[in-house]
Design a protein around this nucleic acid. Structure first.
Lengths: 228, 228
DNA sequence: TGCCTAGGTGTACGGCGTACACCCCTTCTT
DNA sequence: AAGAAGGGGTGTACGCCGTACACCTAGGCA
């Protein structure tokens, strides 16, 4: 009567899994704020000892990566109508909606290298919408950077970060990129050609891209003013 | 011969001060990365015991606030020429340059409420340039939000955060705002009138502002494409 | 039957921010 | 000149964090 003891609170807990851990972490962060999410508090939530989590996530960084990966994966991918401006608008507003549902997710996402599969997939889809709409590769490239920049002068968007990490794996995944993310691959290739030797990501001129976006905004508002 | 012992490394250290602490912290973060800046490492750098720092900064948050405050204060305030687009452009590129000099500063700044005097002063000056250029108060308001938003759909810019904190002090500083930051006060007042009951900062519709900026960018790039 | 291994446990370490009680040296008062 | 006051550096200690490492244990497979 006592040996299979702990049926303590009625619900017998299913065994842990990476997915269960990540979703519990998301729920906990939603409810209690990201700053009070620790390996210990999360373990406690799952009625488990802290070290048990490490059988499912490599470390806390990996936990956070997994959390944003799920949130980004939940972005609604509406079907394209063919009007690129409308489609892009919808996709971006869907992303916004998904992230607003978890208030911790934006800072966490931004604090990280963030180039996870879900993220790349989102960016690739967006890029594809521009290209399908007839924008040139260059213009699409600029636009993607414009969308990622914050324009106070507080720049450096979501790319960059985490430089090589491991020359082997980097080269391998770069080779695999076109297959999974054809649109990203296309603008990457074009950028590489136009400016072979450059500082950060191949062929990207941060300063020029920042100024492009800034001018787009300034010209846009100038035009609005001119039209009264 | 021994009692006034420690003239240890030649340079007798001057006494600490808030400014010396903050500048040492900036130098340390520049050299070693923000993630290895701790109260202990900083104290060690200053040949002092960790708790000594607390006589000059309230806590680590305050230390970080002070650091960005100095960096933001170093933004070059070029004289206005009267051509608002040019002036705004210059001011923003100056901000970018100032922040790029300290790679840790952008994430730190964004992680914080950030509404320090130097920050408000920068924003007020920028706002003033738009207003002086003849833009309407409403358009200026929208533009300021557009500049603060990041357009992946990963929104919520630099405003918001830290809601009341202390109803007393809040009301006091709101009353003092027009004197120090007249331009900010003007758009705040206008926003308040147009939409008396609203969720976050008085009279600001996040969603609408986000969409305004997004459309500005999309229309701008659409126009570029049309001109080949 | 007995081994292998995936997954949960327990203990422990070093680092963090910081509360609190000191003490000493300077400066100001009378 | 004496003594009070207090600003600023010190020492100790607490509770939290992430996580390394050794261990145990239950189920599946040979």
């Amino acid at each position: 009567m006592g040996t299979l003891s702990d049926q303590n609170a009625g619900t017998r807990r299913t065994t842990l899994s990476r997915d269960r851990v990540l979703r519990a972490a998301i729920a906990y962060a939603d409810a209690n704020g990201i700053e009070s999410l620790s390996m210990r508090s999360l373990a406690n939530e799952l009625d488990v000892v802290p070290m048990a989590l490490y059988k499912h996530v490599a470390n806390k960084e990996d936990l956070l990566d997994g959390m944003v990966e799920i949130v980004v994966g939940e972005i609604d991918q509406a079907a394209a109508t063919g009007e690129w401006k409308h489609d892009v608008r919808l996709r971006i507003l869907a992303a916004r909606a998904a992230l607003l549902g978890h208030s911790w997710s934006r800072p966490v996402l931004e604090s990280r290298g963030a180039m996870t599969p879900a993220m790349l997939s989102y960016l690739d889809a967006l890029t594809g919408l521009f290209l399908a709409g007839g924008l040139s590769v260059d213009l699409t490239h600029q636009m993607m950077h414009a969308l990622g920049n914050r324009m106070w002068g507080f720049s450096q968007e979501l790319f960059a970060a985490t430089p090589p990490k491991d020359a082997e794996t980097l080269k391998a995944q770069k080779a695999a990129l076109p297959a999974h993310y054809p649109n990203l691959a296309e603008i990457a290739k074009a950028a590489m050609h136009s400016d072979p030797a450059s500082r950060r990501a191949p062929g990207c001129d941060d300063q020029a891209e920042f100024e492009f976006a800034l001018d787009l905004l300034l010209d846009g508002v100038g035009r609005l003013q001119a039209h009264r």
